[in-house]
Nucleic acid binder design. Structure first.
Lengths: 322, 322
DNA sequence: CCAGTTATAGTCAAATGGATTATAACTGGA
DNA sequence: TCCAGTTATAATCCATTTGACTATAACTGG
């Protein structure tokens, strides 16, 4: 960064020695029996990951390789989430810089016989306050909200107090605002900032008395998951990615339940059906499913042709306001 | 992060030697006199960039440093675009891997006295087919469309022909479809794939006779710009980022012209005003502007409070359908 | 003073989207 | 066999949004 002269090329030559390690991290999602799940490895709650190496043809293929090797699970849909520089690692002899590239990937559970070293866990074990399918959960009403308000009011100056209350209110839909399921990351950051959650291996292991009951993850993996949930909740509204999580054929209610699992909130049934039908996202298989518990339901399959037809627009899924 | 046991860690230890270079690249945007512009450096059409180095506190601060150094321009709003692995560079002694992290940044032209080594160029010099403010431009009607159809029909098998025509039709709104201004990247990729554009320093310098008239850029920089335009065109519809490009106070028509410049299409005036007002994005300064050419217009300023109020929802800008 | 230009307000119909009701078709137990 | 419970499917209603248009106001320059 220190040199003479104009051009970028010269600067580049000057600092040519700086090399960093690159890690690829995957947030792999599946929906199993109406529960949205994340793929973890090892005993600890860890996302599949590995370094980007010379033998990898591309970033994505590197990621696929690591996930398949660590979990036995082939990946379908992949989307880049975010790239961030890790806090300085202390290398063997010198300061070591590292960056992580995180990805969102969608699959089906049955896709493969998973290796014994990995498993599926519900999102909501890590983010119990994100599941609003039965209204605001107790942990939010009884623990989170009072603690956050306490934290906000505990700030030194009035400006900070106002700002914290403001953020809490928007994040959780207080004071007449609406709950917005896409604010998963903002909520996590708020809770983290307030010291109400703690991650394994984080610097601050000051075993605080008043933590919100929730499963933690290694390093910053829970933050990556929060980013991925937010992205997915946003994406299902304008791209037909839900079908990556569905079996070959399904009933409309199964499809609805999957969307509800991801969004963490309930959807009005007739409206959901209307939207799916008028967008022609699916077509009937001609068969019906009997194990509905009531009247048999028609089975549908995804119309793959829509991927060519509407590249961006469409696939708006109605998520009721509250 | 490196230890023993449980799958991932062992693999990680095995390939621990792989290090790569990381480049930071900025697509810096300003709107000058109704033209959306990109900041370039040097004689060639190159985006500001530089390697991520040890002295950088974070990726973003590294990017800010390089842009400021190369152009004298301080950056305001920054957003990550995409991280990709470059094609293998051949290093001095061994194979050298490199990845690039690209960013979208918004500023105002007057922000600083720019250094002589850089300049602002209209987007539409690089993407003449993206400016639909006066309808579909001649270059699209007379050159692009026929060449693309020619290319599609020149495919070997029928399936490829159908697929190419399909993609062309959606990208350019043919056969009764609507023009979608957000498909900038898809359009560029299509044109690139068809061999109708060519970049400086790309492998394939087979000076083709029939290129579409447009300015090229160094390496894959034009692709980064296409990604950034698409992101920005999408973003202005749900986040109030336009105001990063506006002066302190402005008339509603100036605001509209700026949005139109970015979107590359015209907006219905009364509807635009209605939407801005009902969202309470702006407030009157109390003053009026005389140099409108007609009746004086009220001056407005951005209500910064909205950033706290509506973190995701809102700021939908109406972009007429056609 | 008049033609040209822009600002601002108001109207109207079509489309969208949320909520509700009604009826059909199955299961399992009384 | 009938009835309660459950789910599927169809249809309707109404408020809001949104695209398109019209009318009037206020300035400029010739």
């Amino acid at each position: 960064m220190d040199d003479q002269e104009t051009g970028a090329s010269k600067d580049r030559a000057a600092v040519t020695g700086d090399e960093v390690k690159v890690d690829l991290i995957a947030f792999v999602v599946a929906v199993n029996d109406g529960e949205p799940c994340v793929l973890t490895i090892g005993q600890a709650d860890t996302l599949p990951s590995g370094p980007f190496a010379l033998e990898h043809r591309s970033l994505q293929s590197g990621l696929r390789g690591w996930v398949e090797q660590q979990t036995g699970h082939p990946l379908g849909y992949i989307e880049q989430l975010y790239t961030f520089a890790d806090r300085d690692r202390v290398g063997a002899e010198r300061r070591q810089r590292a960056i992580s590239i995180s990805y969102l990937a969608l699959t089906r559970k049955e896709q493969a016989a998973s290796s014994p070293n990995c498993g599926w866990r519900s999102w909501y074990e890590y983010f119990p306050w994100e599941d609003h399918r039965s209204g605001a959960p107790p942990v939010e009403l009884n623990v989170l909200r009072p603690r956050l308000i306490e934290w906000a009011d505990g700030a030194g100056d009035a400006a900070t107090r106002r700002e914290r209350r403001q953020r809490t209110a928007t994040a959780f839909g207080l004071d007449g605002r609406h709950w917005n399921e896409e604010l998963t990351l903002q909520r996590y950051e708020l809770i983290y900032e307030a010291g109400l959650v703690q991650e394994a291996g984080s610097g601050r292991d000051t075993t605080r008395a008043s933590l919100v009951p929730s499963k933690s993850m290694v390093a910053d993996h829970r933050r990556i998951v929060a980013t991925g949930i937010a992205r997915l909740r946003s994406k299902i509204k304008y791209r037909p990615v839900v079908f990556e999580l569905m079996p070959q054929s399904f009933t409309l209610l199964q499809l609805q339940r999957t969307v509800e699992a991801l969004a963490g909130r309930l959807i009005n049934k007739p409206n959901f059906r209307r939207l799916i039908e008028q967008q022609e996202l699916v077509e009937e298989t001609g068969e019906t499913s009997v194990d509905t518990g009531g009247r048999p339901a028609r089975l549908y399959r995804f119309r793959h042709a829509v991927l060519d037809e509407t590249p961006i627009v469409g696939t708006k899924l109605p998520v009721a306001r509250g």
